[in-house]
Design a protein around this nucleic acid. Sequence first.
DNA 1: AATGTGTTATAGTATATCTAGCACAAAAGA
DNA 2: TCTTTTGTGCTAGATATACTATAACACATT
Lengths: 124, 124
Amino acid sequence: MYIEIDFNSDEALYVQLQNQIIMGIAMDLIREGDTLPSVRQLADTVGINMHTVNKAYNILKQEGFIQLDRRRGAVIAIDIDKAEALLKMKRQLKIMLARGCCKRISRQDVHALVDEIFDEYRKE
Amino acid sequence: MYIEIDFNSDEALYVQLQNQIIMGIAMDLIREGDTLPSVRQLADTVGINMHTVNKAYNILKQEGFIQLDRRRGAVIAIDIDKAEALLKMKRQLKIMLARGCCKRISRQDVHALVDEIFDEYRKE
DNA sequence: AATGTGTTATAGTATATCTAGCACAAAAGA
DNA sequence: TCTTTTGTGCTAGATATACTATAACACATT
């Protein structure tokens, strides 16, 4: 699994790390039980500071995507709190759809986008 | 149209202003041609600094939701660049759906959420 | 004993956010 | 005309966040 960082992005580095890892899980590039690189190793290969990686890992742990262990390092371990996840998604969708609505994006447009993206993710 | 600010939120004040105004447009509480309060007036009623309101207005202008005029103030004027809006939405959806996918949120769950939210917005 | 984990502490720099005050020109109202 | 209000531009300071840099710690593995 390759992780690419855009230093010119306005997104914080640790957020970019989070997103890449989460998308890696969704696309099945890494699975439950797989280990991520150590904080020092990932920091080296990406070219950023150890603490920035550590911050990303800690948030991922807090959000229930990985577990951190002194022996094994960072391990993919999804804590499925679907109700909580749905609430968060709804909050985000509310403002995203408001923006789209103003720009005349239809309900069908959104459904199409969702389907298109979902096709790249988990094949269940 | 009422605007409420949560000072305990982790969201920046100017972002909260943006979102409230955009949702106001989506819910048809304010329409094309309507004017928003002046920066000083809104700042007073909300209890924040003038420049914070000014920042929100300027971003809204840049994103094509309002026009700023010295005579009329801030006027709702949607610049419909649907293609651009779709691109932005897709970028956001990509990471949002990845998170949901990891938490076992199904395609149908998302469609239901989208419909539920859309019902509160523009009746076309 | 050496190495590799995550973890914590401290410090420094840079950027973002919010507030405050001032000045100016254009527009509106009395 | 006079006054007020408007958006705009500018500077400045306070606070928080982001990122980097070192260093050290506790634990497990080799």
